[in-house]
Amino acid sequence: MNGGYSFTLSDRTLTALPSGALWWDAHRLLCVSDLHLCKSERLARRRGLMLPPYETRETLDRLGALIDRLDPAQVICLGDSFDDLDAAAAMDEADTSRLCLMQAGRDWIWIEGNHDPGPMDVGGRHLNELRQDSLIFRHIATPHGSGEISGHYHPKCSPGRGGTRPAFLIDCARVIMPAFGAFTGGLRATHPNLKALMGPNATAVLTGRRAMPMPFAAAC
C-alpha cells in the first residue's frame, strides 16, 4: 500500500503523511498546520468576495477522516487554524459541533499563528508554542531553531515536470509543514525565505497519493 515518509528529527521518528499532516507514532500525536478555517467568511467580510463557503466543511472532512483512521491521543493545530479571530467566532454551528466531536477524548492544542494570535471561543488548549521531548512546535520557524516543527509558509514544490504539490520541507534541524486547509495557496520552495531556512541536504516531501520525497536542492 502507499504511505507516508518516515524520518528522524532530534532522534524522534516522525512520519510525513500523504495528506500533508505529520504523525508522531510514539505519542500517537497528529499535527496539522494552517487550516485557515472560515477563510471565505473573512474574504466576504473584508473584501466583498463571495467565494464558495465550503472550505471549512472540506477541511474538517479531511481532518475528520484522518482522525477516524488514526485515533490520535493528541492533536496539534500549528497556527493559522482560523483565518482570523472574528472568523473563529462566526463559524457555522454544524461545523462547530463537528469540531467538538473530533476533540472529544483527545488533548487538542491550538498553537497561535499570525492570523489567529489570541484565545478563541473553541475547546482545547491555546498555546504560543509547545515543547515535547526534544521537539518544539511553533507557527513560524526561527533562524536557529532545532527540533523545530512549524508551518506558516505553505511551501509547495515541483520536481520539474508533473505539476506542483504542497510539500513538507525537512532537514536535520526543522520541519516546515504544508498548509492543510482547503483554500490555501502556496509559496514556492524556491522563495529566498525558505531557501535561507533550509540546510543544503534538506528534503522536500511532496503530498499526493503517497508522500514523495525529493532533494530540496532539485526543487530550487
Binding site: N2, G4, S6, T8, T15, P18, D25
Partner: peptide
C-alpha cells in the same frame, strides 16, 4: 529509521 516502517493505509 530502522526497518519497520510505519505506513498509513491509504
Amino acid at each position: 529509521p530502522s526497518k519497520p516502517q510505519w505506513r498509513v493505509g491509504w
